[in-house]
Amino acid sequence: MIRFNITATLVACIISFLSSHSFADVVVIVNPSNSVSELDDKWLSAIFLGKKTKFPDGSSAVPIEQQPGTSARDKFNENILEKNEGQLRAYWSQRIFTGKGQPPKTVNGSADVKKLVSENPVFIGYIDASEIDDTVKVIRKLE
């Protein structure tokens, strides 16, 4: 019985570790007052690469990124931007040093993204699905 409990605890630990880190779902969020309810990947990618500055309804869109190294960032970059960290650096170095644009504002993690998005309808960001609450609206889920 003790052995079974230990095994079950271990399994639960491993599952929770996997789900909260490497395999966690990532969601794209906007402010609940934003009229956008979904956004296709091309538009989403264009906003985060500085090629579009508006939501489809014409209101301003300002992307917020998580700092390099978070699993949410890696997942978003791979799925939506289709660039790894090095390719993204090369992309932004072209834009920064030719005056075409600056990369998005970067914050520490999901909690900081959620706080900014909940305070201002121009912001759009991505967070771990475990952070979802009613202060933000989910418009895309990356599994």
Partner: peptide, 18 residues
């Protein structure tokens, strides 16, 4: 003062990381 865009890489010719 800006880069004369004569070639594809002109704008970021010095940024060879790119």
């Amino acid at each position: 003062r800006f880069r004369a865009p004569l070639f594809y890489y002109s704008d970021f010719l010095d940024t060879s990381y790119a």
